[in-house]
């Protein structure tokens, strides 16, 4: 299998889908002439022309709403937000319009829209530019929320997201764009709403998604050298949440931690923790542990930033704690 970067995998997914269906267009800041603020849309303008690859002014509410409107009448827009921090400017269009149109129209309308871009902290971008916002979107009935952690998953899931008839929030990461991984050649899709077991193990279940999958895999390696085999379970789509494989895993391991770089309060991590606690209650040998961002706005200082986020050490500590080792 060829190795592709996360960035290339997403670029391929968009290009292949645009090739297949001319109702798809992509709009966002710097997506065309500049080739993408993070070079994800590199070459798309040259391939598909300026009618379908469109540079927008800094007007997130305007062009996201335009995407919702165009989707209501049959186009399949991909709206790129330069980062999800800026999607907050368009939050009304996303929550009140995109998510609810199907319901409010009694099933007459659909909104086949993808809103995608990087999510979560990067490097020292400070409070307004370092937010993992998936829990906010996952809170909303009517939205699907996808947070892939590998290039292969990103490509397959994005293709499904583009073909989905519902609004899908698709969250990438600046610091993962360069990450390489094997991506199958040729056409494939990965269904939304399906959990994947990334590593098998019998001693503890580590549930992680997005960037945190890679951290969880590293932690699993480290635990393995201490004779502990962790099962790493990746929901990939955080809404709808496929909890069955998580519960199956916990039935086997009897111990579970959840890793997320979002804030802990009312979060995807706390939702997963709740589901495990209630649906696998009789199998748990310890309360479910959460490893999340600290409950603070992100400080600019590098050391504070590092300490505000999940780290391998924090994952190992949480694992040891549910394993009652020290």
């Amino acid at each position: 299998m060829p190795e592709l970067s996360f960035r290339e995998a997403i670029n391929q997914a968009i290009a292949e889908e645009m090739e297949r269906d001319d109702s798809i267009f992509i709009v966002g800041e710097e997506v065309a002439k500049y080739q993408g603020a993070y070079k994800v849309t590199q070459g798309l303008l040259q391939k598909f022309g300026e009618q379908r690859v469109i540079d927008a002014p800094i007007s997130e509410s305007g062009f996201t709403g335009l995407g919702v409107g165009a989707a209501m009448v049959g186009l399949r827009p991909i709206v790129e937000v330069m980062t999800f921090n800026f999607s907050l400017v368009a939050i009304d269009q996303i929550i009140n319009n995109a998510a609810k149109m199907r319901h409010m129209s009694g099933g007459q309308l659909k909104v086949p829209l993808v809103i995608r871009g990087p999510n979560g902290p990067a490097h020292q971008l400070a409070a307004t530019h370092s937010q993992a916002l998936e829990s906010i979107f996952a809170h909303i009935p009517g939205l699907k929320v996808v947070v892939p952690g590998t290039p292969k998953d990103a490509k397959g899931l994005l293709k499904s997201a583009i073909r989905d008839d519902n609004p899908v929030i698709f969250m990438e990461s600046e610091v993962m764009y360069g990450l390489k991984g094997e991506v199958p050649e040729g056409e494939y899709t990965i269904p939304l709403g399906k959990t994947d077991v990334k590593r098998e193990g019998k001693d503890i279940t580590i549930i992680a998604y997005g960037k945190m999958v890679n951290l969880a895999m590293e932690a699993a390696k480290s635990l393995s050298s201490d004779g502990i085999e962790a099962e790493v379970v990746d929901p990939m789509t955080v809404r709808p949440l496929d909890d069955e494989p998580m519960i199956e895993s916990v039935k086997k391991t009897n111990r579970c931690i959840v890793v997320s770089e979002a804030w802990p309060f009312a979060s995807v991590a706390s939702e997963i923790g709740y589901r495990i606690s209630s649906k696998a209650f009789d199998y748990l040998d310890a309360p479910v542990g959460l490893v999340t961002a600290e409950d603070v706005p992100m400080p600019y200082n590098k050391i504070l930033e590092h300490n505000a986020l999940p780290t391998i050490e924090k994952i190992l500590n949480a694992a040891n704690s549910v394993l009652y080792k020290k």
Binding site: I58, N85, F86, L88, V89, Q124, A126, A127, T128, H129, P299, Y300, N301, L304
Partner: peptide, 23 residues
Amino acid sequence: GKGGSMHFFDAERKMLGGHAIVG
């Protein structure tokens, strides 16, 4: 050390910030 380049504030001199979300 919490703000960095994009968030200079000096309330005493009535400089009410550096703001990083455009507009």
